[in-house]
Design a protein around this nucleic acid. Structure first.
Length: 870
RNA sequence: GGGCGUAUAGCUCAGUUGGUUAGAGCGUUACGUUGACAUCGUAGAGGUCACAAGUUCGAAUCUUGUUACGCCCA
């Protein structure tokens, strides 16, 4: 046995074990282990250009607690880690740091700059994750900017393209005017704000009928109006449908249609249909075959040249229309709205203005109100596959289960195919060229899998020269890369495109996906879509959803509130084990406040654990070299008669039950429940009672006798098992203790976190061994403590006679030996009493107290106070 | 508007198929230190389990409704 260190210093332990684990590749997945023991985790790579926050600590630690348990329980865990450095946030960061515009240089040059800027940011994450003791397989660390990652993203593109699940289409697209790029529905956020619903009259051609009064919140789109929609049961529907209205300011004749999807309750019951205000406009456009009239450009500004006055876009007053166009040209949509309202007001064309709460879709990233514009984009087919996506979502086990509904409601509400092309400079290229060769102009050319990764703006397809093709400039949506992390880790996307399909087949689908709930509709959704399209499979069998980390008062952490906690400072102050303990007490899916109280509790636990093991160690230190054999298993040592004392068996029986309960909870991913079982045993059974009881037998000189030997083995097994049970939660302190206990033993395993080191209930003794008698012992002891506490004397205060009576099923023929077995010596030692008697009734006049379970009552006759000697 | 979650001691939370007297930590009160631990120990006080109705021999737990807070979607 190694000597026991004087004091536990978390910083030393953390530094030491981090280095050792890294050196030993301690958490490397083993390809030689049987495939059925594989347990693969799909870790979402964090965006390294963002700042570290406690949320990272929280959700990644939750995953690691499970990973460590799974590994210890015998699974061959593959826990990969990557860094996402491929998206718009990285582009922005690099532009800021290097004071450049990505668009002004070649893609290659920009990527080179990224590779220069990113490493320190990546290091921050690497450092945090390493300090947190995430048991990842560092030999598989990857960057999404790497060739390998880009290759898999492009392979994914090729596979879907070949299967016809991915195509380029010219159609209305969600557009972020601030970042000037197409975006997907998942990147849209709806914000509520106060808006104005304006009632504006449209004259009716011929002049015989009253004007049609429409209600709109987007008057700047009057120029884009292609039709008016009126509910068929509207009182004016009969006279208006089929007529033309004349748009104010522009003088454009606008046909009026009956449309039963118009909400007759809202506004005036007559609405403009424009190119394009929202998804409904697109549906109506398609249904009624309306002409495209685009008035807003890609920057979200009013266009300066509209073909008003042409054949397809006539006007009653072309000059007036052009004057308005000129007046509004170049204004952003919001400004144009104000300007056009001003003009309409001047002309008396605002009949009514209602203040309404409206829901405005904005781009999640830039916060800019969205536009819908028509440009060619690449789409992955999702709308036609809703049912299959839902089916896959149901094949996955969600923890907590109700989180699946988030995905389901999202899928059910999908209105757009997944647009994956982005008009950005930086990112993974869309691997296609468009032919300029006579006779095949516009033909789409894709590279061969061997050619990947390609940049079509600088590379060329086989057999074509630079003059023959135009390379696609757009890049892939960053989710298009993120969503193939399972394929990246398993090396390929599908059988016909894979070089290492055997590995893929072995590892896919993965066992578990840990992630936070705010990325269900994006990351989880996309990953499911990809796995479905590539191989008709789920990407993972389990998904566990973590909640948010909140400030100690339960509010969200935010910079504006100033309540953001720096995770590094948190780790410095408490140590990783304590912070991980806090995570371990949280429940999957639930938000958890960063409570100082829980952190303090963790700190207490680490200290207590340290001291409890120290006690066991001190006992063993007294054993002469070679006097006792190295402990084996509880079961074997019990069978060999080494563990002979009933209270030792009682404690080990409880421990056996704890192992079973903790294992069961972990198998259900209820790690907090597991922690509770372990902590409960450790604190209540082991420290509060067992250690007090066993102390009598831990002091000896020379070779221990039978009951001392029994104590030594019991203490060893308890210590070794308790450290293992706590190991997934507190890897550093448990590793330190494990090293001290086993460091030089024959049965030593290098790390407590090794595969298969989790205790097995079948290696213990039956939980009910001496259970009733031992529990009675503890009850009686509690009653005795209470008497002493009420007398306000120390536990060491000497007692002459301790009287015990059974309260329940009180039987005068019962005896002490029958309720608590042959343990009177132990009770005498803990209570400092000379004798114990079974008394019916208890002597009158003595101080007495009942046990907490009311099964026993104890009276104490204290020994006369000895005069204190000087 | 639709859906989901949460509501238990002063505070933070457990409570696994309904079952004795609802638990833990912090805080609080009293007491206790020469052999693991004062970053401690022992004992005590503290709860109409959000509210209302129902099912049941029995409800924190199941059903329905209400309220408050939070989240997701429209």
């Amino acid at each position: 046995m190694k000597p026991f260190p004087k004091k536990y210093k978390h910083t030393d332990a953390e530094t030491q074990w981090q280095a050792r684990w890294a050196e030993d590749d301690a958490f490397k997945w083993s390809p030689d282990a049987p495939a059925e023991t594989d347990y693969v985790i799909d870790t979402p790579p964090p965006t390294v250009s963002g700042t570290l926050h406690v949320g990272h600590v929280y959700s990644y630690t939750q995953a690691d607690i499970m990973a460590r348990y799974m590994r210890m329980s015998g699974r061959n865990v593959l826990y990969p880690i990557g860094w996402d450095d491929n998206g718009l946030p990285t582009e922005r960061l690099v532009e800021k740091v290097k004071k450049v515009r990505g668009g002004n240089m070649s893609r290659e040059e920009f990527v080179a700059l990224c590779k220069e800027v990113i490493p320190p940011y990546e290091d921050e994450f690497r450092n945090l994750f390493s300090r947190l003791a995430l048991s990842v397989d560092w030999s598989r660390e990857y960057q999404t900017i790497s060739d390998e990652s880009r290759k898999v993203s492009q392979l994914s593109f090729l596979d879907l393209y070949r299967k016809g699940l991915l195509e380029r289409r010219l159609e209305p697209t969600l557009w972020d005017p601030a970042d000037r790029t197409a975006i997907a529905q998942a990147e849209v956020e709806e914000i509520e704000r106060e808006g104005k619903l304006n009632q504006i009259p449209f004259e009716i051609e011929g002049g015989e009928l009253e004007p049609a009064i429409i209600a709109t919140s987007r008057p700047e789109l009057i120029g884009a109006c292609g039709g008016l929609m009126i509910h068929p049961e509207h009182p004016r529907a009969k006279e208006l449908v089929g007529k033309n209205a004349i748009s104010p300011l522009y003088g454009v004749p606008i046909p009026i249609y009956a449309e039963d999807t118009v909400d007759p309750e809202k506004g005036t019951g007559i609405v403009m249909c424009c190119t394009f205000g929202d998804v409904t406009d697109i549906q109506w456009y398609r249904k009624h075959k309306l002409p495209l009239r685009v008035v807003i450009d890609e920057a979200g500004k009013m266009k300066s040249d509209l073909a008003i006055g042409s054949e397809g876009w006539p006007s009653k007053d072309v000059e007036a229309a052009q004057a308005i166009i000129t007046q509004l040209a170049g204004l952003k949509a919001e400004k144009a709205k104000e300007a056009i309202l001003e003009i309409l007001k001047e002309r008396g064309l605002i009949l009514k203005q209602d203040v309404t709460h409206q829901v405005v879709p904005v781009a999640e990233r830039s916060g800019a109100p969205l536009e819908i514009i028509v440009t060619p984009q690449w789409f992955i087919k999702t709308l036609d596959y809703k049912d299959q996506i839902l089916e896959k979502a149901r094949e996955i086990t969600w923890r907590p289960e109700y989180m699946r509904q988030r995905l389901e409601s999202w899928v059910e509400g999908l209105k757009w195919d997944w647009g994956i092309s982005r008009q950005r400079h930086f990112g993974v290229s869309i691997p296609v060229w468009y032919s300029k060769r006579p006779g095949e102009e516009g033909k789409i050319i894709v590279p061969s899998p061997d050619q990947l990764p390609v940049d079509p703006t600088s590379d060329l397809p086989e057999g074509y020269s630079a003059d023959d093709v135009i390379g696609e400039k757009d890049v892939l949506d960053t989710w298009a890369t993120s969503s193939v992390s399972p394929q990246l880790v398993t090396r390929t996307v599908s059988e016909d495109l894979g070089k290492d399909y055997e590995t893929h087949k072995r590892l896919f689908p993965m066992a578990m996906r840990p992630q936070a709930h705010e990325i269900i509709r994006t990351w989880a959704f996309y990953t499911i879509v990809k796995a479905l399209h590539h191989g008709q499979s789920v990407p993972w069998n389990n998904i566990s959803i973590s909640g948010w980390c909140l400030a100690s008062d339960g509010s969200k952490m935010s910079k504006s509130k100033g309540n953001v906690i720096d995770p590094i400072k948190l780790l410095d102050e408490y140590g990783s084990d304590v912070v991980r303990y806090w995570t371990g007490t949280s429940r999957l899916g639930h938000d958890t406040a960063l409570s100082p109280n829980t952190l303090a509790q963790g700190k207490r636990l680490v200290t207590k654990l340290w001291n409890a093991i120290k006690l066991a160690h001190m006992a063993w230190e007294q054993v002469p070299e070679g006097a006792l054999a190295q402990p084996s298993t509880v079961k074997a040592d019990f069978a060999a008669g080494l563990i002979s004392h009933p209270m030792d068996q009682w404690m080990l029986g409880h421990l056996s039950e704890t192992v079973a309960k903790a294992t069961e909870a972990f198998e259900k991913y209820e790690y907090a429940q597991a922690l509770r079982h372990v902590e409960d045993f450790f604190w209540r059974i082991h420290c509060d009672n067992y250690l007090e009881i066993v102390k009598r037998r831990t002091r000896f000189e020379g070779v221990p006798d039978a009951e001392q030997t029994s104590a030594l083995y019991a203490l060893f097994h308890a210590s070794a098992t308790i450290t293992k049970l706590f190991a997934p939660f507190m890897p550093f302190v448990t590793e330190t203790l494990h090293d001290v206990l086993w460091g030089e033993g024959d049965n030593a395993i290098a790390t407590i976190h090794a595969r298969g080191s989790w205790p097995k209930a079948e290696d213990f003794i039956a939980p009910d061994t001496f259970r009733r008698e031992g529990d009675n012992f503890v009850s009686i002891l509690a009653a005795g403590r209470k008497v002493k506490s009420e007398l306000q004397v120390s536990m060491k205060a000497p007692v002459e006679v301790m009287e015990v009576a059974g309260l329940r099923d009180s039987d005068p023929n019962e005896s002490l030996a029958r309720v608590m077995g042959d343990t009177a010596l132990d009770m005498e030692a803990v209570m400092s009493t000379q004798t114990i008697v079974w008394a019916h009734p208890l002597s009158e006049g003595l101080p007495r107290a009942a046990s907490p379970d009311n099964d026993f009552e104890v009276a104490l006759k204290m020994a006369p106070q000895e005069p204190k000697s000087e």
